[in-house]
Design a protein around this nucleic acid. Sequence first.
DNA 1: ACGGGCGTCTTTTTT
DNA 2: AGACGCCCGT
Length: 738
Amino acid sequence: MNCLEGLNDKQKEAVMKTEGATLILAGAGSGKTRVLTHRIAYLITEKGVRPNNILALTFTNKAAKEMKERIENLLQMNTYSLWAGTFHSICVRILRRDIERLGYNTNFVIFDYTDQKTVVKNCIKELDVNPKHYEVKSMISFISNQKNKLTSPQEYIKEFFGDFRERQKGEIYELYQSKLKSNNALDFDDLITKTIELFINNEDILDYYQEKFRYILVDEYQDTNSAQYELIRLIGKKYKNVCVVGDADQSIYGWRGADISNILEFEKEYTNSKIIKLEQNYRSTKNILNAANYVIDNNMNRKKKNLWTEQEDGKPLCLYNAESELQEASFVVDRIQNIRDIENYFYKDFCILYRTNAQSRILEEMLIKRNIPYKIVGGLKFYDRKEIKDIVAYLRLIQNPLDDVSFKRIVNTPKRGIGLKTVEKVQDYCNNTGESLYSAILDVQDIGGLSKGAIAKLEKFSLLISKFIAMKEIMGVKELIEAIINDIGYIKELEEQQTLEAESRIENIKEFISVAVNYEENEGEKSLEDFLANISLLSDIDKTDETVNNSVTLMTFHSSKGLEFPIVFMTGMEENVFPLSRAIFEDDELEEERRLCYVGITRAEKQLFLTHTDRRMLHGKSQFNAPSRFLEEIPRNLIEEYLGEKANKRKQIREGMKKQEGKLFKGHVYRHETIKPAINDIENSTNIAIGTKVNHKVWGIGTIVQVKGEGEKTEVTVAFKNKGIKKLMLSFAPIEII
DNA sequence: ACGGGCGTCTTTTTT
DNA sequence: AGACGCCCGT
């Protein structure tokens, strides 16, 4: 076996530079996964490193799994002792061993976003602060930000003691954290920060892992946040054999705390670090790669690099301007069918990308209508379905009886006549004794103020849970789930409803059981806690059904990171959609959108389609958006516009425009162009366009930044000098066009 | 305790 | 458009 076979010089260098810190700047499609796997194989065979001395951090569990499989193929040995996984799953593994040192139990559960919302809501209520001032969503991201910066609630409160609002935010954070602890629960960020805390407070444990993980590899390094950076720094401090692979141009998780400056920090932290650049792209045709290079070049805040390919020019990019999202969907599906028929591609070779999950619906409907098999990544959120969350809540309470959030979810699901008032009384009791809800109802007589009926019902419930806890000891996960469903009569209740919705819920539950079967067949360890951690740490990519074989893939641009497809459709290429409206006025956010666009383009191997529509239903309203600025950033000679048979009229209009403007794609013509109405209303069109200057009776001069609706209902958003942004009904507003 | 109905709000990406 | 929360009647 030769670990260097088939690699180019740079790749070889990256594989062989095993000692010391290495920063691999790997452009899109430059074979970084290949380098990582070969590097690990090289470490094992050539350097005699034992697999259990290697830690590989990946972005999804799927990537970890694939990496292990490839190494196994390369080396013909099993990689059981190699730790490869996401930051989160690796941290769970570490915490399961030693989290007791931090005062948690090793059977802790992981709280997802829904649980976090519940906890934050409780905190706001309990602290009796004005909920208007502290939106749940922004509190969660506030807390997440603090954790990623490794700021404790106490530190935050201390720092902002003088500022009432900030201090109160700190207090919510503090209460949130203590609630998590009393529930014996960790949120996603805690998995990282608690591991760091464990290391910092326990030198022996840190030392153990420093010795264990002598070689560390980190994939998708551009998307790590400061906490993750700190974690790597701690573990790697002793041997400094840290190899990170990333591409700053593909950093798309800034909103989640990912920090590109980690790349700069890396060079500072590891003074003798070696930087290796992989710039040859093996994935895409010249046309596609050029388009990507041109687009990303518009980002000011970036190091130039030269990504090149030996491949042929390939087909030009195909641009399509639809009237509506329906027409857009129908175009995409037409092309898929057509190309598959004529050019020998399979359905699995196609991928449809969009900016937001909400855009998938129309595409799905069209695919169903035309009988094309497809799978959708994310969006669907199988594990967010009520019926699944209910069953999971049972499992969580069984595995961690301190979990009050799950307790409250299921105490009256299915209906047992235990209402809010009763639960509140138990909660009051618990607030005094410090017990968990489940523990309190074990001695339900001790709780004051409950009616006889309530006591009986609670007793029955506590017996039920106790029984399940006993069953857990002797049953596998699948068996346990089936026992629970039978016992509580969940499916029976649904069957009685006899609705389509109930039917699909039953289907989902069956699907969930097969998830458990799968888990028991494939996973080495088979505990309930491991099962639960497993399902909560799955990325959207991990969750997609691998068994659906030959189908078109639909997903967001974000989910597509790290993947590749022969033929890619980038849909919804419109201002306010992509880039998203809120990113347009923020330079940083706009640049991140552009990187996202770059990620999208570079997914394509052979052919790339770009579609945009004149009119799109968004949030229940018709919107007219100009074509995305990213389209203008692609040189015109790389693009061929698709004009279907119905487009003759359109073609004439466009030809006319071309003559007028001289060029269609040069400069920012589109954005200042009159909003194009749907063809049939052309007679009714007005001169209102984005960029039009208007004079308002009261507010003076302003610029139109958005136009929504049509006809009498047209609503314009105008940015006034010094007066801010106002929404106006065109038909009533006292404005005139300047 | 529970469910229906009405009004309000919000609009991203996710481990 | 859709989710969510609140209120009221049973």
